[in-house]
Computed example of a mutant assay.
Amino acid sequence: MTSSNSRTSEYPIDAFFLDRWSPRAFTDERIDRDVMLTILDAAHWAPSSGNNQPWRFIYGLRGTPAFDTILDLLVAGNQRWARNSAALIVIVSKSYRVASNGEHKPAYTHSFDTGSAWFSVIAQAMKLGYHAHGMEGFDKEKAVEVLGLPDGFRVEAAAAIGRMADKATLPEELREREVPSGRKAVAEIAFEGKFSGEA
């Protein structure tokens, strides 16, 4: 068992995994472009089926038009706290691979691979003193249009990166939610030999 960040694991994992969480309270500090690119450089070394590297990151730094463009894609509930982050990202994956004859073939693991790159974003951000918060709550169709995504690319998620602030900076109704969440028991998500969990 490992304990950290008000969480306790069932098995002796590294405390990093307990320290990782998705806060909403961010300072209004800016992030340097080179720091942002360092975070994204770490992501592009993620594992990739056939080295297809399907992940793409469209980012905006606080105080730039790109940040405002991405912020405008978020639902109102996410905008109210994400506006204080240092950077916003839209995470996209290429849903095909190009065969040797130039034909486009479906890339079955494109989302899986892009998820591993996203975790690398989180890990590198934390190593530099930042936190990241992924979001499903944004206008995906508008993102395709506004960000100029070509056919064959899937919008996966949006994310905010920043330095954590005191939860008192959040709107009152979000403050009580500003704690690291628990997880299901390992027995509910890992099965030896055959699926036996809830459908």
Results as ranks from 00 to 15, higher is better:
2 T>Q: 07
3 S>K: 14
5 N>P: 06
6 S>T: 15
16 F>M: 13
19 D>G: 12
21 W>P: 13
23 P>L: 06
23 P>Y: 09
26 F>K: 01
27 T>P: 05
27 T>H: 08
29 E>T: 09
29 E>C: 05
30 R>I: 10
38 T>R: 14
39 I>H: 08
39 I>L: 05
42 A>H: 13
48 S>I: 06
49 S>E: 12
50 G>A: 06
54 P>M: 04
55 W>E: 10
57 F>V: 09
58 I>P: 03
59 Y>P: 01
60 G>F: 05
69 T>K: 12
72 D>P: 00
72 D>Y: 00
75 V>H: 03
76 A>C: 00
76 A>D: 14
80 R>T: 15
83 R>M: 07
83 R>D: 07
86 A>L: 06
89 I>W: 12
89 I>P: 00
91 I>R: 02
91 I>Q: 05
92 V>G: 02
92 V>A: 06
92 V>T: 10
93 S>P: 03
95 S>R: 14
99 A>L: 13
100 S>Q: 12
103 E>C: 02
109 T>I: 00
110 H>M: 00
110 H>G: 01
113 D>Y: 05
114 T>Q: 08
117 A>F: 11
121 V>H: 06
124 Q>E: 15
126 M>H: 14
129 G>C: 11
131 H>V: 09
134 G>E: 12
140 K>W: 01
141 E>V: 11
151 D>R: 03
153 F>N: 11
153 F>V: 01
155 V>K: 11
160 A>V: 10
161 I>P: 08
164 M>Q: 15
165 A>Q: 03
166 D>A: 15
166 D>N: 13
171 P>K: 06
172 E>R: 12
174 L>H: 04
174 L>E: 10
180 P>A: 10
183 R>N: 04
185 A>K: 15
186 V>G: 00
187 A>M: 00
187 A>T: 14
190 A>E: 01
193 G>P: 03
196 S>T: 10
